[in-house]
Nucleic acid binder design. Structure first.
Lengths: 146, 146
DNA sequence: ATAATAGTGGGGAAAAGTGGGGGATTTCTA
DNA sequence: TAGAAATCCCCCACTTTTCCCCACTATTAT
């Protein structure tokens, strides 16, 4: 289970450290792709395989399906750790998520998310006030305690 | 699986690089044809064979079927990599997709798509906002996580 | 305090991408 | 049918990017 928040930097060559805690789960090869928000997702290969499985079942004759597959896969790439535990960030993805120097890497269960530090700050302060409400909303039909 | 986004240029002789990452999957000979959107599709030979197989099963008595087959096959052409890993873009296809100098090559699973940089930019910004919605829509019947 | 692990930065070799010269082949044309 | 023109494709030269390696710093553990 991927969890936690780590602050790191991207060097001038476009390389970013993958925090040591995540390396065991991710292995040395994994998938990096555009997130739905203004961030990057990082999936272990097996988790990503489940997603592509799903995508395959979508008909390429449907416009929405084509758009979505295009959006999702065009942003995806398999990357490999170097001996220092870093990856080279693909430029289009860095641009998409406005990543420059300071970034935040967070674990969200089955994937990682990489945010620009400023974007993360903004997102976080904006959303934290809504959390109580969102929580009620998500679990309104549920009797479960947590 | 063909994935990723690469920005390259077409030189004055009409040649375009096929990114190194794709060459293994494509082999040295593959099929290039008109895309459904304003772009060019590139298929490995075997994937293209499967598609033509499907097209054959369409009833040629249906007007739409005839149109589609005509559209799809009239633009299709087998091309070969030169020793530098480039292909020579057939002029009618370049024209169809408004390809001039700067182009974007994206992997979308079983095929590549080649877009003019401006067209891609336009498509992308237009669709970006719909993606979250489309995603919810596509996966609404699913219990799976992704 | 010392050793081990994690993170940062940069040099340099190798690979990928770009552009153009020029020869061979094909096509056009007179 | 010969010569001109266009096209294609092989090769070379150059630039940029990627990747491997080493050195150094910072942090954590013993």
């Amino acid at each position: 289970m991927l969890m936690g928040e780590f602050h790191h930097s991207i060097d001038q060559k476009g390389r970013m450290i993958i925090p040591a805690k995540f390396r065991e789960t991710l292995g040395s090869n994994f998938i990096i792709t555009r997130g739905i928000e203004k961030c990057i997702y990082i999936y272990p290969k097996d988790a990503f395989a489940q997603i592509t499985q799903k995508l395959k079942s979508l008909p390429f004759t449907k416009k929405n399906a084509r758009s979505f597959v295009r959006f999702f896969l065009s942003g995806a790439l398999e990357v490999e750790l170097d001996k220092q535990g870093r990856i080279l960030l693909p430029e289009p993805l860095a641009k998409y998520a406005s990543l420059s120097k300071n970034c935040v890497i967070i674990g969200t269960g089955e994937r990682l998310e990489v945010w620009d530090e400023d974007s993360w700050q903004t997102f976080f302060t904006e959303e934290q006030d809504n959390m109580a409400e969102i929580a009620e909303d998500l679990f309104q039909d549920s009797d479960e305690r947590w």
